[in-house]
């Protein structure tokens, strides 16, 4: 068997693949956080809970309406996105004039509510979500076995990330968004409905989290606490990348996923903590983050 640095190549590529999968989720979630932060100036602590809600929405759609994976991939993010719109209208819009920390505290409270409700209804144990038939099986690439679903997750999240980046950086809508981030009052004076744009941005960010949740459902168990630990890692990813750049968030997300996967091969004990250690090093060397702009 082929060996690289004394590690069997199948193990190495296997972990690399897992790293890319985790990186897909880091990228999708930190992208959503960055988009929301750009417009609302709020760190959305309930992002993890909304990712969990996406997974549960897919599970419930399958159980009660028979809607399978593919429709769920569209319907679940829309449903969860609508709850996000409601949250923004009911709660978040009252906080824009206050210190940013209140937004963090409020969304933390919402995360507790969502997670608590899910635990009451479904218990703490995970629920399985069956893979769609069309994505079962895999390809033998010669040096490793690539399951179809995992390949799909990587391709889909990369596509969504780049699509979002394209919309924000290269379209008229994106230009409005960027302008409203810089100077909302001036953009309003041009007759653009900024409050509605803010609401929809939050809804979109939440829908991104839910989309990630649906994609995660067949890989991990669907469980109430699946979001809370992930979101802390994503926070570290966001600190490392800096939220100033959309592309930066995507690159950092995938990159850190891969680094974490490789750590699992070479120093398994450190795999849980490696991202936090990298965060500490980045803070020492480049306090503004890799892609951050110094305020």
């Amino acid at each position: 068997m082929l060996e690289i640095f004394g590690i069997p190549s199948t193990a190495l590529f296997g972990q690399l693949l897992i790293g890319l999968i985790n990186g897909s989720f880091y990228a999708l979630l930190s992208l959503g956080l960055a988009v929301i932060f750009g417009m609302l100036n709020i760190i959305n602590f309930s992002h993890g809970a909304q990712y969990m809600m996406g997974a549960f929405a897919a599970y419930l759609l399958l159980q009660y309406t028979g809607l399978g994976y593919w429709p769920a991939l569209i319907v679940a993010p829309i449903l969860v996105g609508i709850t996000g719109v409601i949250v923004e209208r009911l709660f978040l819009q009252r906080l824009y004039k206050l210190d940013h920390l209140y937004g963090l505290l409020l969304t933390f409270g919402l995360a507790l509510i969502f997670e608590g409700l899910a635990r009451n209804k479904f218990g703490s144990a995970g629920l399985p979500y069956t893979l769609p038939d069309s994505l079962r099986g895999g390809q033998n690439l010669g040096f490793m076995f690539l399951p179809n679903y995992r390949a799909w997750v990587i391709v889909a999240s990369l596509g969504i990330c780049l699509g979002t980046w394209f919309v924000i950086e290269w379209t008229r809508l994106g230009a409005y968004l960027r302008a409203a981030t810089e100077n909302p009052t001036l953009v309003r004076a041009f007759g653009i409905n900024v409050p509605r744009m803010i609401t929809l941005t939050y809804g979109f960010g939440v829908a991104l989290a839910a989309f990630a949740g649906v994609m995660a459902a067949p890989i991990y168990n669907v469980s109430p606490q699946m979001g809370s630990e992930l979101i802390i890692v994503v926070f570290a990813v966001v600190v490392i990348g800096g939220m100033g750049s959309i592309l930066g968030a995507i690159v950092t997300g995938f990159g850190l996923g891969v680094i974490e996967g490789l750590t699992k091969v070479f120093f398994p004990e450190a795999s849980n903590t490696v991202i936090f250690v990298i965060m500490a090093i980045v803070l020492l060397v480049r306090p503004a983050g890799l892609f951050g702009r110094r305020a």
Binding site: I43, I232, V233, F276
Partner: peptide
Amino acid sequence: LAIRRQGIYFAMITLALAQMMYF
């Protein structure tokens, strides 16, 4: 480490470091 960033980042850094020590 944490005071190298302000505001919202400060909260995220302290949370992440605490999670590291939890592990």
